[in-house]
Design a protein around this nucleic acid. Structure first.
Lengths: 237, 237
DNA sequence: CGCGTCTTTGACATGTATCAAAGGTGGTGG
DNA sequence: CCACCACCTTTGATACATGTCAAAGACGCG
């Protein structure tokens, strides 16, 4: 969900996860880098912040993929979404993080002290508007997520997720037509609101429908993206 | 979800839907009212905007309750949330509304031309930050919604919804301890991602557990809010 | 090559959607 | 003010999708 501003003004990407554009422009980058610290997380599976802890920083993903999740009531976990290059995370109410963030790949991100960032945003309305756009984008993604969880069966939800990953060129190799998932089955299950077993069965059904061809658990061929999209959203095939 | 700013700075409400505070402060109201038009919708069930249409306006709810929804693939509808006094709606990407908005009660709201609002926000960073906070709040509500849809059974989801409504003093009469729902069963079902029949059964189970006592389909006594909250989130009882 | 972990499969129990019909509510007009 | 009617809500019966438990199989790392 772009937002109510003309997208091109702030280089907000048109579709989700174009990843190459949508990084900050030169002037924004300059101003932000004066108050931000570039941090490097070399591996997958590293924690960035934890729900319930005091929130001192906001993060802007520079490269790699971050998983946002929250613990449910009975110890269960819900994956709320993924953050890619250009996305924000760490917004927190009342000084405590609501969610946890972990790396799914090697990740680099800018870390901003909240107090300093607040001052910068008030001084530089253009940059603040960039943040507003990014937050509205996250809201749009969350609403899409709600639609998936609310209406579709697990097979379609999985198709939607695969299509979403296929829109990132860090996951989808367009020349080879192969998709490499950055997440394990458990993460997929927690994102789709189901169990790893049901995810496995959903994968089999997608393969039976010839929408994907599995090479290994995390690698698969997706020769016809349009068909996958069609199935995920319109429900045909 | 407040946001990464100290909440009191902008009178962002601490809990959801306190409704009385969280309206704009005097200076903000003055600046906004110069570019906004106050509109009145006298009945429930009136459309404010429709998904897919060109988005010319952003709305700020002044009083009443607004339902945000979207049509799913197969003609099914998903209710994405509700907007109360102080909430924003109508943010749109690429110039088209993503969602539809309708009144659930009589409603008054400010309507802002997007172009003018954009200029105002760039000129008045404090007001823009208010909008940023409100958008982050909406994101937090959406994430809570995702948690409900992803993890809990229908009875718990309904309990969560009833608790959320009970936090609004336009729905809950604390002296009488009665809750008056502004929505029909179909809306509840579309919000919880289930069917009206399952909602009816969930109501019966809540009554059997003595968490509510129904007076009429939309009216009920909730004598122990803490107990309801406990059941919704911790899953006990 | 071997082991731990992740993934898949099977069998079964359960919760929920769906279809159909009865029951209740609230508004309208007589 | 009452009675009627349309619509909303509840209930029941059944089928199906999914969660859960248990175990076998595959992957990938050291």
């Amino acid at each position: 969900m772009g937002v109510f501003l003309s997208a091109h003004t702030f280089a907000a990407r048109p579709g989700p996860h174009s990843a190459d554009d949508n990084l900050l422009n030169a002037s924004e980058e300059r101003a932000l880098s004066q108050i931000g610290v570039l941090q490097t997380y070399p591996h997958a599976g590293m924690p960035i912040f934890r729900e319930g802890r005091e929130a001192h920083y906001v993060y802007l993903v520079q490269s790699g993929i971050v998983r946002i999740s929250r613990e449910g009531a009975s110890g269960s976990r819900q994956v709320l979404g993924f953050r890619w290059a250009g996305d924000l995370t760490g917004l927190a109410p009342g000084g405590l993080y609501l969610n946890s963030a972990d790396t799914l790949t090697a990740v680099t991100l800018y870390r901003f002290s909240i107090a300093r960032l607040r001052k910068l945003l008030l001084r530089e309305p253009q940059i603040q508007m960039h943040f507003l756009v990014k937050t509205a984008d996250a809201l749009a993604a969350a609403q899409r997520h709600i639609l998936w969880l609310g209406q579709q069966d697990v097979v379609r939800r999985l198709a939607s997720l695969l299509y979403e990953f296929s829109q990132s060129n860090s996951c989808y190799d367009a020349t080879e037509k192969t998709l490499l998932l950055p997440v394990a089955r458990g993460d997929i299950a927690d994102f789709l609101g189901t169990s790893p077993e049901s995810v496995a069965r959903a994968f089999r059904k997608l393969e039976q429908k010839n929408l994907i061809a599995r090479l290994s658990p995390r690698r698969m061929m997706v020769s016809n993206l349009r068909q996958l999209r069609q199935f995920a959203f319109s429900g045909d095939i």
